[in-house]
């Protein structure tokens, strides 16, 4: 298993960005801006934790943006039916698990390629939602829905703790649980893992279901920030999530990567957009710059892989 090369280079990039900002735009580090930044990227982070596991098993899930939108609407609709916010939130997470389980079952047991399955569910869920809501947003939410019924000051602390707890738990589990080992083995060499007695289908199914659950949780935590829930939320979210995971050093071919890398990837890609605005660069450059970072990450990965192959073949 490779050491922390990628994590260090992403961390160094973040540090460099922070230094530049500290000199040129110290306003970037105001508490308000950082809190905004965190809240805006929290859904990306939570879903990226699940996506890391999906990519580690050698699969991909591009339906996360659509699942995010559906779960947000489900949470809002249940809250309007009079359910307490915790029950509405739990309902949205169950909806996420169900959608993730459908993806997982089709990939793991029907053995269809994950890119095809999740492309289909992405479109089906997105257009199904459009049809169901007729494009209308959910508004007139009950007052306790806002900020989960907490104050606007307590809420960010709560979700910061939630995000850190989930990241730490998944990182720890991947490293220390037999199931985490199975996830790496499945993505690194599925047939060897199967022959070694690992139920590769079960783990593939499970990581998709977990990703659905995290999309649900992210949708609930995000929707309580606003007084309306859009029916077109999460457009393009899957790209942000996948980009963060790849920039964080998880091999798109599976079997290698870490949660720490993903967290750093989310921070780098999330921080760089607003930084441009603060530095007076047109925001139109944001996506181009993000694209360049992703490309650099993929090229670095390819070079690393080639170097490693040479070492192996010489040995």
């Amino acid at each position: 298993m490779r050491r922390y090369g990628r994590e260090l280079s992403v961390a160094a990039s973040i540090l460099l960005l922070a230094l530049v900002l500290a000199f040129l735009a110290p306003g970037y580090f105001s508490g308000e801006n950082l809190a905004d930044l965190f809240l805006a990227n929290m859904p990306v982070l939570l879903i990226a934790l699940g996506m890391t596991m999906v990519i580690l098993t050698g699969q991909i899930d591009i339906s996360v943006g659509s699942m995010f939108a559906v779960c947000g609407i489900v949470a809002g609709a249940l809250a309007k039916l009079g359910l307490p916010i915790l029950a509405a939130g739990a309902g949205a997470i169950v909806a996420g698990i169900a959608m993730g389980a459908v993806n997982g079952a089709l990939v793991a047991y029907v053995r269809m390629p994950s890119i095809v399955v999740t492309l289909a569910t992405m479109v089906a869920l997105r257009d199904g939602l459009r049809w169901a809501t007729q494009g209308a947003w959910v508004s007139d939410l009950p007052p306790d829905f806002q900020w989960l019924g907490l104050s606007q000051e307590v809420y960010p602390i709560l979700i910061a703790c939630t995000a850190i707890a989930f990241a730490a738990a998944i990182a720890w589990g991947l490293r220390n649980l037999a199931g985490g080992r199975a996830v790496y083995a499945t993505g690194s060499n599925a047939s060897a893992a199967l022959l070694a007695g690992i139920d590769t289908s079960f783990y593939t199914f499970t990581v998709f279901a977990i990703t659905g659950a995290l999309a649900g949780l992210a949708a609930v935590l995000n929707s309580v920030r606003f007084n309306q829930i859009p029916s077109n939320a999460g457009l393009g979210l899957e790209m942000k999530v996948i980009a963060a995971v790849v920039v964080g050093g998880t091999a798109i071919t599976g079997g290698s990567g870490s949660i720490a890398g993903t967290v750093l990837g989310v921070i780098l890609l999330g921080a760089i957009g607003p930084a441009l605005t603060f530095l007076g660069v047109s925001a139109y450059w944001e996506r181009a710059l993000q694209g360049a970072i992703i490309l650099a990450a993929v090229v670095a990965e390819a070079i690393r892989e080639r170097a490693e192959k040479q070492v192996v073949s010489r040995a």
Binding site: L177, A178, R181, Y184, S188, N189, A192
Partner: peptide, 24 residues
């Protein structure tokens, strides 16, 4: 290479892969 060892995992993880319940 195809079906035996998992090249990216450490030797220890490869050896314990079929007897994870013994070490956990």
């Amino acid at each position: 290479r195809q079906h035996g060892v998992v090249l990216e995992l450490p030797i220890a993880a490869n050896i314990s892969l079929s007897s994870l319940d013994r070490v956990s």
